[in-house]
Write a protein that binds this DNA or RNA. Structure first.
Lengths: 332, 332
DNA sequence: GTCCTCCATGTAATCGATTACATCACCATA
DNA sequence: TATGGTGATGTAATCGATTACATGGAGGAC
């Protein structure tokens, strides 16, 4: 491939001049500029970003490590990140941690080696030594969706507590009393927060929180299904199952469907996290919607502040309850 | 950050030796190796992939340009690509073309600047000058899902013709005669191929192909909805609408639902491309499933052959019909 | 005419790794 | 004891850009 040196020779100027043209330096004659552009075109010159990055110590690249690429929540998050980064002239490298700490660490390592200018992480579990060290190095970093307590890292997340309280009130108003929560893992901040918010909401509503109605899954389809099976096998099964994320909801629907039970007649269903197809399920699923893409965009803005050397404030965006028909009164 | 020079000084060896340790060169004493590792650890040394790439002219990075990041088909494709690339020690940079040629070109440019070792493209439309030039340069390239005729580029795609013929036969066996096809854009190979296969299948089944039942969309939700509205407003609306991809199906379902019509009673629905939630729709949607993740994995293998200098053969994987309940006989 | 300023452009060091080639110590062999 | 081979390590060029500093010519002020 043509190098800057070739372009310089072809245009009869020095490499410095070509570099100036490349970087829109105003101190180049229009005539020279034109000659250089012509030479570039003729030689099909494509600047080498690797060489440039080595010299400038900036790659104009951001790293994004998501929890699970098959989860539409993270896909939409990635979309928001992509959009905002693209607008600011950055490229995004997405790593899929597959909800495993070792995969997450693999990507942290790779992305640091690649010298990304900043890192967006949806931390997979409790802090790993590598992430801890990453924080210490002071490299621009933002936690997205999830946080890790004890680490001073700006973050962007959704607050579901208000919406969860509304949901519980909604369920109560429809005559439901026995409400189960199929939560995410307690190792994730989102898992814990939703569980706590649910417990608080139940208390506020004056409803019993039974131990056997609380089960922790892993934010994936399989655990949603398994938990649903266990709950439905209880001597006194719950009237409602509230799932901690959209994939667990999907698993739960599988199990309910497989047993030939009807929603909400036999068991009502609600989901934390909304996805497009919930309106097409029979009945449409009541869900708590997060401002997902907006979370991604916000996180990029926050991260770029860090890249610019300014420190930013964590952001919490509100989630909201979307009532559909999957939680109506029994027999209604 | 610590450089190789610092590690060398700290361990009391030359940079060459450190580099050899880094690259598992066997001609380093175990004792020296240990000293170097200790120095790396102490200095928290992370090799600079940018510098390495500049020297070795290889980035161990692949570029993937997908059509639309919100389309679960491409997400799953990306997942397959990710998995296989990761196993081979490559990092993937994903670019979202958002079904626009200019966005696609933007990513082609960026990825070539970044000197990715190979490029996987789901070409957005007819060939652009940039893509044409890319092909001429001989850089390792594989087309994924879609192809561009006239360009000699290895590709990986699914063959839907057989499955489409089966689908039409299935529809006929259920008593359907007036079948509409909401296809993708004729500018995409997948749009054209599915349309042709559908036409051929209808002919083979001895069914009429009415012009007003053939409409081209853009593989996105909105066009699926608009086409459905148009079809249902026809003096003699079709008995079945077959959608060209999962997002257009989603849009179609929206419209049908909004009109309060029942499936398959008022109109039957089938989809090219299957997604997880189709089983939860009422009724579950009959669809043609592509081996999506496998396509992604295969494409990476093919691309890596190109990277290694060997030229590979295009691959066509079979799609298959999954019969559910959305196309049963009227009133059945 | 001389000198100074300013502007466009050129020269060469630099970023952090890899690697061809050089070197040096050690040992075996004649 | 000289010779040569071998194996570990070092020296320095190199990859392709950016950029501080140098240079040289044009034009204005006196």
């Amino acid at each position: 491939m043509a190098r800057i040196k070739d372009v310089a020779a072809h245009a009869g100027v020095s490499v410095a001049t070509v570099s100036r043209v490349l970087n829109d330096n105003p101190s180049v004659t229009e005539e020279t500029r034109d000659r250089v552009y012509a030479a570039m075109k003729e030689l099909r010159y494509v600047p080498n970003a690797v060489a440039r990055s080595l010299r400038t110590e900036a790659t104009r690249t951001l790293g994004l490590i998501i929890g699970d690429i098959l989860n539409p929540f993270f896909t939409e998050l990635a979309r928001g990140v992509e959009d905002e980064a693209r607008q600011a002239g950055y490229t995004v490298i997405i790593g899929n941690a597959d909800e495993r700490a070792e995969e997450q660490d693999h990507y942290v390592r790779t992305l640091v080696e690649q010298r990304v200018d900043g890192l967006l992480i949806c931390p997979t579990a409790e802090v790993t030594p590598l992430v801890e060290e990453l924080v210490r190095t002071g490299r621009p970093l933002v936690f997205l969706d999830r946080t890790i307590s004890g680490l001073d890292v700006p973050s962007v997340r959704a607050d579901g507590a208000t919406a969860i309280a509304e949901l519980v009130a909604h369920l109560k108003s429809r005559g439901h009393r026995r409400i189960a929560f199929a939560s995410g893992p307690a190792t994730l901040s989102t898992g814990r927060e939703r569980t706590e918010a649910f417990a608080a909401a139940m208390a506020e509503a004056g409803l019993d929180l039974r131990a056997e109605y609380m089960a922790a899954g892993d934010f994936r389809e399989g655990s949603g299904r398994a938990i649903t099976a266990r709950l439905l096998d209880l001597p006194e099964p719950p009237e409602v199952i509230f799932f901690g994320d959209n994939l667990m909801t999907l698993g739960g629907l599988d199990e309910i469907r497989a047993r030939g039970l009807s929603i909400p007649g036999d068991v009502a269903v609600a989901s934390f996290d909304d996805v497009t197809w919930f309106v097409h399920v029979d009945p449409p699923i009541t869900a708590i919607a997060q401002p997902t893409a907006e979370m991604g965009r916000t996180a990029v803005r926050l991260l770029l502040q860090g890249v610019a050397g300014r420190s930013g404030q964590s952001v919490v965006l509100p989630a909201e309850l979307v009532v559909r028909r999957s939680c109506e009164r029994k027999g209604a």
